[in-house]
Computed example of a mutant assay.
Amino acid sequence: MNRLRDTLLTAVVPVVWGTTYIVTTEFLPPDHPLFASLIRALPAGLIAIILTRRLPRGSWWWKSAVLGVLNIGAFFPLLFITAYHLPGGVAATLGAGQPLVVAILVVFVLREQFSAWRFSWGVVGVIGVALVVLRSTANLDTVGVIAGLLGTVSMGTGVTLTKKWGRAAGVPAMALAGWQLTAGGLFLLPVTLLLEGAPSDIDASALAGYAWLGLIGGLFTYTLWFRGIGRLPVASVAVLGLLSPLVAATLGALLLGEILSLAQMLGFALALTAIAASQITPTRKAPTNTTTSVAEPPMAPRQKRRT
C-alpha cells in the first residue's frame, strides 16, 4: 500500500505539469518563456528555503547547483527552444524519451542491472505519446531537435543523480526542492535579463498564471517529485512523466474544443498501459537444478553407554 500511495502522489506531479501549456498560452503574456521559467523557479525556491529554514551544507552546495541546473535552469530554456522551433507534438515526443535515457543511465550511474522490461515499456510509452500528439504535417528543425534531445538528457541526468545522491539526513523533500529551484532560478536570472527581460503588461490573469506555475507547478510539484524519487525506483518515476503530454492533450480536447481521433485514443491506451506496467518489478524465477540432493539430518550426539 505504501508503494501505491507513493506512486499516486508522485503521479500528481506530471498531471500538474500537463497544465503548463494551457496556462502559458491562455493566461501569460506572449513571447516571454524565460521570464515565466524564472518566476516559476526562483520565488518558489526562496519560499521553500524560508519555510524549511534549511540551507545546504558541505558538498550539498555544489550538488544543489548541479541538480538545479540540470533539472530546472538548463531544462526550462531547452524546453522552450524546442517549443519555438518544433511543433508541440514533436517536442512532446522527444520529451517522452526521458524514461529511455533514465533506463540506460541507471546502469552506469546507479550500477543497477539493465531492465529490459522497463526499457521496452518506455518504448511503448513513446509510441503512445507520439500517436496522441504527432501530426502528419509536422516539420523537423535541426535546432529544435537538438534542443529537445539535450533537454531530455538534461532532465534524465538530473533525475538519476537526484536518486544517486539522495538527501542529507534530516533534510525534508521541500528543502531539497527549494535548493534546486533557487539554484535553477539564479542560473536563469542573468539569462532572462540579457535575452528577454520582463513583460510590460502583467494583468490579473497573468499574476494568477504565474502563481499557479510557481506555487503549484514549482514548489508543490517538485517537493512531491523529489519525495517520489527518494522512495520509488527512478525508472518508474521517469515513466510517470508520460502523463504530462497526455494531460495537455486532454485539456486541449476539453477546453479548446480539439477532437481526439481513433489513433490518438489508441495512443492514450498504449501510454497508460506503459505507465502502469513500468510500476511493476517483474520477479525472477530461481534457477532449477537438474539434480537435487536431500540433506541428511544432523547426527544426534553419541551418548556414552552406561555400564
Rank of each mutant, 00 (worst) to 15 (best):
A263I: 11
Q279V: 10
A277L: 09
T283V: 15
V191G: 06
G214D: 10
R306K: 10
A277C: 09
Q279W: 07
V294A: 12
V191C: 08
A183P: 05
A211K: 01
P301H: 09
E296D: 10
T283F: 00
S278W: 05
G184S: 04
F220R: 03
S200V: 01
G241E: 07
F187C: 11
V191D: 02
L262T: 15
Y222E: 00
T290D: 12
Q264W: 05
E296M: 11
T250E: 01
Q303R: 14
A277H: 09
A183F: 06
R227S: 12
P282W: 00
P297A: 15
M265Y: 12
G228W: 04
T292V: 13
V294N: 08
F226P: 02
T273Q: 06
V237Q: 01
T223K: 02
L232R: 06
S261G: 13
Y210D: 02
L256G: 10
A276G: 08
A183I: 10
T221R: 03
E296I: 12
K285V: 04
P245W: 07
W212G: 00
Q279L: 08
L232D: 04
G184F: 07
L242P: 07
A300Y: 05
G218N: 04
E258L: 10
T291F: 11
E258F: 09
G241K: 00
T288G: 00
A211G: 11
T292N: 11
V239M: 15
L240Y: 05
R284A: 11
G241M: 11
A269F: 10
L243P: 03
L188F: 03
A286V: 12
L240S: 03
L215N: 06
I275D: 07
M299D: 12
V191H: 01
Y222I: 14
E196Y: 01
W212I: 07
I202C: 02
G252N: 08
S278E: 05
T221V: 15
G257E: 08
I202R: 00
A249T: 09
Y222D: 00
S261I: 11
N289K: 10
V234S: 03
A276Q: 11
G197M: 08
F226L: 13
L251V: 12
R231D: 07
L243G: 00
F220M: 15
D201V: 13
L266M: 14
